[in-house]
């Protein structure tokens, strides 16, 4: 009997996945986004092989400083004569690592907080949710400023700072989902059967909020990449001379009059990356919940 049930759920979940996939690949935007992201990930993974960090990325060559885009330097060079093409490609690593890292960290913390709030209810819920409300009301750039100045500027600290705002948005999703599912009869019957709370969370609650979480992950990685570059632009993100895209723009700003390409190209890199994530996120939302598709 038990194996039989297992088998049927397995079949069902596979068809659900296939169904989602079938709908997703019908969506042209999502395909474009996915292809771009795969290329970007490949670039991020391969860039240490393609370039030598010490010489190609941060090595200075004043003789070639501030060259506009040309055949030798497709994206031109910066004020220290470094090739912007190499730096922008290498920068993908930072954006992706920070984006994914912060969102995953936020997901873990947010899920714990959200399910605790939703399940315990009462005072625990009020404290957690009020805390998150307060947190949410402070502009996240301010929070990041406080955290980064508390911990110091580094890539990891930037990730932690950005994870905070992700955590609050995941906590809200998980809590809302817990609240609606908690009182459903099949959950009550699981309780009656003596299933421990954590098992109920893993078996019933999480699968039910999986769709909004997957969509939220995709979209939040995009937002986080923008926030990370904003903080680097302000000089409190990834420290120089690392070629993070926001830091490149910050350097470019000083040359906006004489080398405007330095301002244009890294921004395009950010925009297309986030655009790809948004396309994929929207596509996933429509594919996971066709009822929502309007």
């Amino acid at each position: 009997m038990a194996t039989e049930t297992k088998a049927t759920t397995k079949v069902k979940s596979r068809t659900l996945f296939q169904e989602t996939w079938r709908r997703l690949i019908k969506n042209r935007g999502a395909i474009v986004g996915m292809v771009f992201l795969i290329l970007l990930i490949a670039v991020a993974v391969l860039s240490p092989v393609l370039f030598d960090y010490e010489t190609d990325i941060i090595g200075q060559n004043m003789a070639e400083a501030l060259q506009p885009p040309n055949a030798a330097h497709w994206f031109g060079t910066d004020e220290y004569g470094r090739d912007l093409f190499a730096r922008v490609l290498y920068g993908a690593r930072y954006s992706l690592i920070i984006g994914v890292g912060a969102v995953m960290l936020g997901l873990i913390v947010g899920t714990i907080l959200g399910s605790a709030a939703g399940f315990k209810g009462g005072i625990t819920d009020s404290i957690i949710m009020r805390g998150i409300d307060i947190f949410y009301s402070i502009p996240n750039i301010m929070t990041a400023v406080v955290i980064v100045s508390l911990l110091g500027t580094s890539t990891v600290n930037l990730m932690i700072a950005l994870a905070f705002s992700c955590a609050s948005s995941f906590a809200r999703i998980v809590r809302a989902s817990v609240m609606t599912i908690r009182d459903q009869e099949y959950v009550e019957s699981s309780y009656a059967m003596g299933l421990p709370t954590w098992k109920i969370i893993v078996k019933h609650i999480l699968p039910n909020c999986l769709s909004p979480i997957i969509v939220q992950i995709t979209l939040l990685i995009g937002t986080t990449i923008i926030s990370a570059s904003s903080l680097s632009f302000l000089g409190i993100g990834v420290p120089a001379p690392a070629p993070e895209w926001g830091a490149l723009l910050s350097a470019g700003r000083g040359h906006i009059r004489d080398a405007s390409y330095m301002c244009v190209i890294p921004g395009l890199a950010i925009m297309f990356t986030v655009l790809a994530l948004n396309l994929l996120g929207d596509g996933l939302r429509d594919a996971l919940d066709p009822k929502l598709k309007k």
């Binding site: 923008i226 904003s230 723009l249 244009v264 921004g267 297309f272 986030v274 948004n278």
Partner: peptide, 17 residues
């Protein structure tokens, strides 16, 4: 979609240019 994908400080730089 473009609007939400663009870092606004970069948009500012583009507008200046």
């Amino acid at each position: 979609l473009f609007g939400t994908s663009m870092p606004n400080f970069w948009l500012g730089l583009m507008l200046i240019i």
